[in-house]
C-alpha cells in the first residue's frame, strides 16, 4: 500500500514555519507517511544553512512520484517568494506567496495528489496588510476554498489513558456574543460534523461526545441561565433520537476532570476559553488543531508564527509532529 501523502504548508516565511518543516525532516520519527512541504526552496535552503542543519531539499513537480521519507531529506513543491524573507521581519509583499502555498495544498488534496494538509502558522496581519483586507485566518480561507458552510475547530492531544479531543461550538468571538451565537441549528450542525468525522476519520464506531453547558453549573435548572434548557438540551435530545451518543449538558468545571474525560471520545465546549485550558495543563502533551467539515483532512500547529524565535532553531517542533501524526491517523481511515 502506498504511503499517504501529507502536504505541509510552511506558512509565514519570516516565522518559525520554514524551520519547523526542516526540523521534522531531520528526523521523521518513523511517520508512516510521505510529507511534501510547500514553500520557497531557496528560503528553506537558506534557513537550513543559517541553522547549520543538513537537510537536503528534493524539489519535485506536482504529480511527480514522491520519494519515500528519509531522515535529512525534505521533498518540496516549489512556490516562489515575492521578496527574500529575513527571520522575524514581516513583509506584506509576501502575503500572496503565503496564500499561494495554501492554494497549492488545497488543490492537491482536491485532486487526490495529497491525502491531507498540515499547516504551519501564518501571520494574519501581514496577509491583511499585503492586500487581502478580508482575510480572517486559515480556517475561514479553507472553508471558502472548499465551498462548505461551516467548519468545526477541534484540538487534539495525546493523553496517557485516552486521547483528548476538544471541539468548539464557537471560536474567536467576544464573550458577550457567545450566548447568542449558540443556536439550535448551529449546534446541531456542529455535533453532526463532529460525530461524523470521529466516525469516518478516527474510526470510532459510536463516538461518545460530552457536551458542556454554557452557564455556571450548566445553568442549574435555569437558575443561572436558560440556554441549556432552551437550546442545548433540545438539540441533544433530538440527536440522541438519531442514535448519537451524547452526554450533557454537563457543568464545564467538573467535565474537564479525568473521571469524565476517560469516558469521552471528544468534548464539545461552547466557547474558546471553556475548551482550551484543559489542553494546556500538566499531564497533557502538545496539541494539534484540526478543522472538521471541510471534506478533506486539515490539521495545524496550535501556535503562532513566533517571530522572536524565527531563525534560532529553538522553536518547539512538538505541535507540528502531533499535527502530522493526527493527519496521518485521519487519512488512514480513508484508505
Amino acid at each position: 500500500m502506498a504511503l499517504p501523502v501529507l502536504v505541509l504548508t510552511t506558512g509565514e516565511p519570516a516565522g518559525v514555519g520554514p524551520e519547523l518543516a526542516l526540523a521534522v525532516a531531520r528526523d521523521w520519527q518513523q511517520l508512516a507517511a510521505t510529507v511534501v512541504a510547500v514553500g520557497d526552496p531557496d528560503l528553506l535552503a537558506e534557513r537550513a544553512r543559517l541553522l547549520g542543519w543538513l537537510v537536503e531539499l528534493d524539489v519535485v513537480d506536482l504529480g511527480t512520484r514522491l520519494p519515500v521519507p528519509t531522515d535529512g531529506r525534505l521533498p518540496v513543491w516549489p512556490v516562489s517568494l515575492a521578496k527574500p524573507s529575513m527571520p522575524g521581519r514581516l513583509d506584506p509583499a509576501n502575503a500572496g506567496y503565503v496564500l499561494e502555498t495554501l492554494d497549492v495544498a488545497i488543490e492537491a488534496c482536491r485532486r487526490g495528489t495529497a491525502d491531507a494538509m498540515v499547516t504551519a502558522p501564518l501571520h494574519k496581519g501581514a496577509i491583511i496588510e499585503g492586500g487581502h483586507p478580508g482575510f480572517t485566518g486559515h480556517t475561514e480561507y479553507l472553508r471558502d476554498a472548499c465551498g462548505v458552510e461551516g467548519v468545526v475547530m477541534m484540538l487534539a492531544t495525546e493523553r496517557t489513558s485516552k486521547p483528548l479531543r476538544v471541539a468548539l461550538a464557537t471560536t474567536h468571538l467576544p464573550l458577550s456574543r457567545v450566548a447568542e451565537a449558540i443556536t439550535g441549528a448551529g449546534l446541531t450542525r456542529v455535533i453532526r460534523v463532529l460525530a461524523t468525522e470521529l466516525n469516518q476519520r478516527f474510526g470510532i464506531a459510536s463516538p461518545r461526545i460530552l457536551v458542556c453547558g454554557l452557564n455556571p453549573h450548566a445553568g442549574e435548572d435555569g437558575h443561572l441561565g436558560r440556554e441549556e434548557l432552551e437550546v442545548i438540551t433540545p438539540v441533544l435530545d433530538r440527536l440522541r433520537n438519531e442514535g448519537l451518543d451524547l452526554v450533557g449538558p454537563l457543568p464545564a468545571d467538573t467535565l474537564f476532570t479525568p473521571r469524565h474525560l476517560d469516558q469521552a471520545d471528544a468534548v464539545l465546549a461552547m466557547y474558546h476559553d471553556q475548551g482550551l485550558p484543559v489542553l494546556k495543563y500538566a499531564g497533557f502533551g502538545q496539541a494539534a488543531n484540526i478543522t472538521l467539515g471541510l471534506g478533506m483532512v486539515r490539521t495545524s500547529v496550535d501556535h503562532g508564527t513566533a517571530l522572536d524565535f524565527a531563525g534560532t532553531g529553538l522553536a518547539d517542533v512538538g505541535s507540528l509532529r502531533v499535527a502530522l501524526q493526527v493527519a496521518r491517523q485521519m487519512t488512514a481511515r480513508a484508505h
Partner: peptide, 9 residues
C-alpha cells in the same frame, strides 16, 4: 459568579 454567561460582560 453565579450569573448567566450572557450577562457577564
Amino acid at each position: 459568579s453565579h450569573i448567566p454567561l450572557k450577562d457577564v460582560a
